[in-house]
């Protein structure tokens, strides 16, 4: 009996103690407090994790949780309010069953992508026409375009992938990629890079942040895949990385603070650039969901 009393007593004490603790934290003047969950794009995840860490070090009262799951999950989580922020590689308008009116788009940074080949194929640039022919299966050997006598191996993404959608739209002019015989499909950029670097004759596409000396990034129509060329849209294969928030205004203050923090020049040229992504603040052009380009 005594034990029980002690037990209940201590539980009560703990509860009251923690309640007091909580209220104490909440009343700190001018400081943001609360939790924020950010779900979605796996491509964005490592960057958002860094951004969250940076944000939390400046706002000690806020806890930001970052999860992957994919762009589709991110968008539906933002729409259905199961997460505070939905990360997506694509515009909400581009996905079926997502109501763009229920969510607000925040373009937080830009990702540049480009075709990469195995270093042994002996090619360092292509015309866009050649690229389309390769990915639709009309050119099947590197020797046809001046490379080694080596069969072309396509390394693709799954059809639902945002990277694939961006590549198909801007690099292949919307041409449907050749699928089937001989092609490989992988979702993760790390795996794509590994396969391209090891498989003779392989061609795939990667974000700039994955470029290194293991694979050969290609010039397209003489344009080099660099950040500077993306700023001016000379290099067309790029996409915004989006953070979507629900329009119901819940947790608006923290959401806005977090996104505003990401859009500050220090963060854009700091964390974002350091991880290989392109600061959205540097962009000289604007692109909408339908793909129309406007000079800023």
């Amino acid at each position: 009996m005594l034990k029980k009393v002690i037990g209940i007593g201590s539980i009560l004490a703990l509860t009251i103690g923690s309640l007091i603790g909580c209220s104490g934290q909440g009343s700190t003047q001018g400081q943001l407090t609360g939790n924020l969950t950010s779900v979605g794009s796996t491509a964005m995840q490592p960057v958002v994790e860094e951004l969250a860490k940076d944000f939390m070090s400046k706002n000690t009262g806020v806890q930001v949780t970052v999860q992957g799951g994919g762009s589709g999950q991110g968008l539906s989580a933002a729409m259905n309010d199961t997460a505070d922020i939905g990360n997506s590689d694509v515009f909400a308008e581009e996905k079926d069953k997502i109501d763009p009116k229920k969510v607000t788009d925040h373009k937080v940074f830009v990702v540049g992508m480009g075709p990469v080949v195995n270093k042994e194929v002996g090619i360092d640039q292509l015309t866009q026409d050649q690229l389309i022919k390769i990915f639709t299966g009309k050119i099947t050997n590197w020797k046809d375009i001046g490379g080694k006598d080596q069969k072309i191996v396509l390394v693709n993404r799954p059809e639902s992938s945002g990277t694939r959608a961006t590549f198909a739209k801007w690099a292949l002019n919307g041409a449907k990629e050749f699928r089937g015989q001989g092609g490989i499909e992988e979702d993760s950029s790390g795996t794509v890079k590994k396969i391209v670097s090891e498989t003779p004759g392989a061609i795939g596409y990667l974000a700039f942040s994955y470029f290194d000396d293991k694979v050969k990034p290609l010039k397209l129509d003489g344009v080099e895949p660099t950040n500077e060329n993306v700023y001016t849209n000379k290099w067309k294969i790029w996409a915004y990385e989006h953070m979507y928030t629900n329009n119901n205004g819940k947790k608006k203050e923290i959401e806005e603070a977090f996104i505003k923090h990401i859009l500050t020049p220090e963060v854009q040229t700091g964390v974002v650039s350091k991880l290989g992504y392109i600061p959205v603040t540097e962009m000289k052009v604007d692109r909408d969901a339908a793909g129309n380009i406007k000079n800023k």
């Binding site: 796996t42 589709g72 539906s76 996905k95 079926d96 069953k97 799954p158």
Partner: peptide
Amino acid sequence: PISTLTSVITLNMGNTVQGT
């Protein structure tokens, strides 16, 4: 190269939207 049921599910689950 081929696909299995499990590989198609894991590759596409996250990128597609519920209800489509």
